[in-house]
Amino acid sequence: MKSPTILILTGEVSGDDWGAGLASQLKKKFPRSCLLGIGGSLMKAQGVKLIADIDQLSLMGLGGVTTKLPFLFNLRRKVLDVLRDQEVDLIVAIDFAGFNMSVIKAAYQKGVKVVYYVAPKVWAWGAGRTKNLVQSTDHIAVIFPFEEQLFTDAGGKATFVGHPLVDHEFPSQDDRSDFCETWNLDPDRPILALCPGSRPREIARHLDLFVHTGQKVIERFPEMQLAIARSRSIPSAKLWKEQIPLVDEGRRLLAHSRTGLLKSGTVTLEACL
């Protein structure tokens, strides 16, 4: 049996996490497989040969996209060149719909098998985009139970595979003293976690507002202390605020926090879990 060549495409920090988990399982099932992709350090550590690093794709909102359109067009061309020059057996697209949808549509038309894992939230976009996704994929691996029926009703093949966050081992609260010592926090004071996002545009939108709101909370509840969660895709200098610790361990920060201000997205589910 021929060893498969699989192209994994993502464009965000969370997608790098999901892609790394997928790559790990693919290597177990197909030890001699060739894994290519767009991702980050976690995917690279699992043996994925990166076409591009997600640090170059930290986009949010219209402004972020328009400033990098030439880069995205070139990257799309590079991916299509890979499909032309190599015998890719399967594309696995992970979220990041703005870029991935254009790539998988072209790939599907060329006869390349396409699976979408962590499908874009087309149920929030509208029926037209649901149809486009179904028509550009061979299978959709969904992470919310209701999505399976939604895509099946639209004529697609979909399977509920569970949310990848459930597979993570979440931090214990037993190591609070060590955690607080590491990040210059007081273990006897409750923590208000500020989680402004993992993309530069998100930081620009949320950070000052979150800090201002956190300071207002402290005016009323002076026993509270603030801490800012830093994604590995964001340089510390972009988040630095005087007298507010930066914490590189977002999940541990959530585990030890009394409450938090969170940018909507994966982190809100992490906080619930």
Rank of each mutant, 00 (worst) to 15 (best):
K2V: 13
T5P: 00
I8G: 09
G11C: 13
G15R: 08
D16M: 08
G19T: 00
G21M: 15
L26R: 04
F30K: 04
R32L: 14
C34L: 10
L36C: 03
I38H: 02
I38A: 00
I38W: 01
I38G: 00
S41M: 04
S41Q: 14
S41P: 03
M43P: 00
M43W: 03
K44F: 06
K44L: 07
Q46M: 13
K49T: 12
A52S: 13
I54G: 04
L57S: 06
M60K: 01
M60C: 01
T66P: 05
N74Q: 10
K78I: 06
V79H: 07
D81F: 00
L83S: 05
L83D: 01
R84Y: 08
D85V: 01
Q86L: 13
V88H: 02
D89I: 01
L90M: 04
F96P: 04
M101N: 12
A107Y: 05
K113E: 11
Y116R: 09
A124Q: 09
W125Y: 13
T130S: 15
K131T: 14
V134Q: 04
V134F: 12
Q135L: 14
S136T: 09
S136C: 09
I140E: 12
V142N: 03
F144T: 04
E147T: 09
E148R: 14
E148S: 10
Q149H: 15
F151H: 03
T152I: 10
D153P: 13
D153A: 15
F160L: 10
V166R: 12
E169P: 02
F170S: 02
S172T: 15
Q173E: 15
R176Q: 09
W183F: 15
W183R: 12
W183V: 11
N184H: 12
N184K: 13
D186M: 06
R189I: 10
R189H: 12
R189T: 00
I191C: 08
I191Q: 02
L192K: 05
S198D: 01
E202K: 01
E202F: 03
I203G: 08
A204L: 10
R205E: 13
L207E: 01
H212F: 01
T213P: 03
T213S: 13
P222G: 04
P222T: 14
E223P: 00
Q225R: 08
I228K: 02
A229K: 07
R230F: 06
S233W: 00
I234K: 07
A237T: 10
K238D: 14
K241N: 13
I244L: 07
I244W: 06
L246N: 00
A255H: 01
S257D: 03
S257Y: 04
T259V: 03
L261P: 02
K263S: 15
G265P: 08
L269P: 10
E270S: 05
E270R: 04
E270M: 04
A271I: 01
L273V: 05
